[in-house]
Design a protein around this nucleic acid. Sequence first.
RNA 1: GUGGGUAUAGCUCAGUCGGUAGAGCGUCUGGUUGUGGUCCAGAAGGUCGCGGGUUCAAACCCCGUUACUCACCCCA
Length: 440
Amino acid sequence: MARKASLSGFPEWLPAERAVEQHVLDTLRHVFELHGFANIETRAVETRAQLLRKGEIDKEVYGLSRLAAEDEKNDPNALALHFDLTVPFARYVVENAGHLAFPFRRYQMQKVWRGERPQDGRFREFTQADIDVVGDGTLPFSYDVELALTIADALSALPIGDFRLRVNNRKLAEGFYRGLGLEDPDAVLRAIDKLEKIGDDAVAKILVEEVGATAQQAAAALALAKIRTMDTSFVEQVRALGVSHELLDTGLDELSQVIDAASKRAPGKVMADLSIARGLDYYTGTVYETVLVGHESLGSICSGGRYESLASKGKKNYPGVGLSIGVTRLVSRILAEESVSASRSVPSVVYVTLANDESWHEAQDVASQLRERGIACEVAASAEKFGKQIKFADRRGIPFVWFTHADGAHEVKDIRSGEQVAADPSTWMPAEADLKIAIS
RNA sequence: GUGGGUAUAGCUCAGUCGGUAGAGCGUCUGGUUGUGGUCCAGAAGGUCGCGGGUUCAAACCCCGUUACUCACCCCA
């Protein structure tokens, strides 16, 4: 029932849908903090120069300008909305390096904007939830392993069904291609990246016709991309292809560490998938991509990788590794599938009715007593027929209706069962399961 | 940015051969001088996306335009 927004690509949820999204955000926050990540928020805008430093994606960026301003297209100091959280984070780290303890680990959950053509699962305004660890000068490789496990933990806590975190390593791929005699690893990766979409033959054709590979080289590159294992057996499979290169050895070793740890600590969730390429060119080692099992066509719902020098200032260099969860993509899919729903659209557990227009203050007293014990409630606005007041509560999904009789006696009715019992506003408690909006 | 599809009530949609609009659901009222969900009766609700053209007559045909949507590109 994911409702279409009136402006394409700028989704707006109904209250019950937003409750699902908030559950996702709360869960992620909880898990990230359990893993020791501190939260920060960066501003929504960066200078255009800052955003366009990496990659040629200026078409995707929304500019920001005063309506009265002159044309600022070529002004590098003009502002634009950030299109991810990694680039602003890099800037933040450099600016605040003196106040941060390294390795610095943080999570960040914010809106980002991209001027793309929207489609199912693709938005112009959407929420990302990022975790990154950044080191001062160096960053131990063990963080590449740890982040995969943290993300597996976080995704497992969400009501999203089964997922697969696919991991590859740029060094492995580049070393393999170079060992093979292919001198433009990026071009090969771009072709390999299309494998799942266009198939073997089409990729081989691109490799031969556009990248300049021989048929044998193309076949070997495809054979590498075919390797997918849930354990470290991918190493022998790569070795069996008979290619050798120093970078390949490093890549194999790094990927083995990730897969070895993951197969023990997050069994069934993480796999080596040597076809994963990732478009962004700042990744230098480990790369991650995540799909929902059964929803592969949705694309990746969580991606990231290791970057050796995204942030730097003078001689200072800050390597990092991080992942980004596409919260909006994830939420839009589980809402569309109706696989997850909120138990009600309002926080209220109790609807306090009015017997007559004079009893408003009395009803507010009841509400105050309930709220003191953390029970969300609201008071009727006017003394309509009880039937109408009950119906109002029922339509909003509020499970309990409170009655105060003329003699001062209180009763509470469970709308779902129809059961109505005497109750004391200073002690009555609903069942634990009814206290908060439940997501299931 | 390139190409295809769609646009009618709050929602989902029907509308024949051109003759100035319908259903289901939802909403509201009543049956029920005050305890809901079923049932029955009734009511409200439309700039047929927008602009132009053809015609005696356009929701319907033609042109333009905007929005939505799908695919490509790219990505969360």
